[in-house]
Structures are given as structure tokens and as C-alpha cells.
């Protein structure tokens, strides 16, 4: 019995001590409104690949220690699931680009996060938390051929407030950035030159 207690203490005590010093995990979550825009007469297949679905950004402290793990992959998928059906006549989710051809769609959309940046008040000396995200958006034909490839950036900020934790503030700034992505994407999609030409040729 004494041995068991000793073993448990040997494992649990260091684990408890380490957990107090470890990085905080922030899973971005929020709700997104449906865009109030006209639909394009297109059927679209969307591919959320693993890099998007499992996207996690790690923020390091000034001493190089891991400070925050920010998981935003799922929230991006929820965002696209909210905005795409409002933008297109029909949207189907497929697991891979190759499946798009069999789905009988006009185009395949593949969104990806290229870069994620976080600015904390403790480092910037400003009274705001800021999130900046860079995306690469790809639109392919149903056969998987290139149609368009464009870069979008989104930005979100939230002011510092008393009694609001850093994790909550990071989440709030990220949600503002995701809304920014949704608004830019929804309003600029048909203006991307290659997409505009493709739509005109249909």
C-alpha cells in the first residue's frame, strides 16, 4: 500500500507541478451569422484538409517557452459551413479533391490557413489583443484543374478589460478575425479576376 502511495506521489506530484507551468490551451469557439447576400448559381464541393482541420498556433513567451496553444481549425470549418450555403446554390463536403468529380458540382473549394499571428498587450504595450490570419484559397474545376488561387487576410482585435482572462480575450479577437474573413470572402469572391472571368464564361 505504501508503495502504491509512493508511486502515485512520484507520478502525480511532478505532473501537477508541471501542469502549473505549462502552456494554456485555447480552443476558438463562437457563433457566426449567415451572410445577407445573394446566392451565386453554383454548386460547390468543399474540402477541409487535415492541415486546416487540425490547425493549431503556438505562441511563445519572450524566453522561448510555449505560452498558448490556439486551436482554430474547427472554428474555421464551422465558419465556412455557415457562410458557403448562403453564397452558393448547393454545397457538399467531400474528403478529397478526387471525390469532387463524382459529386456533380461546378467547382471545388479548398481553404487553408497559411499564417497566424497573435499580439498580446504584455508584448505590444497596447490595450488590445490582436489576431491576424493569412489564408490561401483555391478554387478548382470539378475535375481538379486549377481555376483560381488567391490570398486573403483577416484581422481581429479586442480591448483589454478588467477581470477578463487572456484566453477569453484571445478567443474574442479570433472570432472578430473570423468574422472579418467571412465578410471579405463573401464580398470579394466574385471579384477575384480568375473567378470573375470563369463566371462570365459560364
Amino acid at each position: 500500500m505504501a508503495n502504491i502511495v509512493k508511486t502515485v506521489c512520484r507520478i502525480l506530484l511532478p505532473a501537477l507541478l508541471l501542469s502549473a507551468c505549462g502552456a494554456s490551451s485555447v480552443v476558438i469557439s463562437g457563433s457566426f451569422p449567415t451572410p445577407n447576400i445573394g446566392k451565386l448559381p453554383l454548386s460547390l464541393a468543399v474540402v477541409y484538409d487535415d492541415t486546416l482541420e487540425e490547425f493549431t498556433y503556438t505562441e511563445y513567451s519572450e524566453t522561448g517557452q510555449e505560452e498558448y496553444h490556439i486551436q482554430s481549425g474547427q472554428s474555421h470549418i464551422e465558419l465556412f459551413n455557415a457562410i458557403l450555403p448562403a453564397m452558393f446554390d448547393q454545397v457538399v463536403r467531400v474528403d478529397a479533391v478526387e471525390e469532387g468529380a463524382g459529386a456533380g458540382v461546378d467547382a471545388i473549394f479548398v481553404p487553408n490557413i497559411e499564417e497566424f499571428q497573435l499580439a498580446l498587450p504584455a508584448k505590444t504595450r497596447l490595450d488590445v489583443y490582436e489576431v491576424w490570419i493569412k489564408y490561401n484559397m483555391r478554387l478548382l474545376t470539378a475535375e481538379g484543374d486549377y481555376l483560381a488561387d488567391w490570398v486573403l487576410t483577416s484581422y481581429g482585435k479586442t480591448p483589454t478589460e478588467t477581470f477578463v482572462s487572456t484566453e477569453t480575450a484571445i478567443n474574442a479577437a479570433a472570432i472578430v478575425a473570423l468574422r472579418d474573413l467571412a465578410s471579405t470572402f463573401a464580398l470579394s469572391f466574385a471579384q477575384v479576376p480568375e473567378i470573375s472571368d470563369w463566371l462570365a464564361s459560364r
Partner: peptide
């Protein structure tokens, strides 16, 4: 949404006219 977000909101009252052309 998405017409009155920080990046898309009209900055001048004259821009309202252009915005109101959108049926929705």
C-alpha cells in the same frame, strides 16, 4: 452581415446609397 463589419462598413453617408442598391 457582412455589410457593416469594420472593414466593409460605409464611412460616408453618401455610401449608404450604394449599399441600399443591394436588395437584401
Amino acid at each position: 452581415f457582412p455589410w457593416f463589419e469594420p472593414r466593409t462598413a460605409p464611412l460616408q453617408p453618401e455610401h449608404l446609397g450604394r449599399l441600399m442598391v443591394e436588395e437584401q
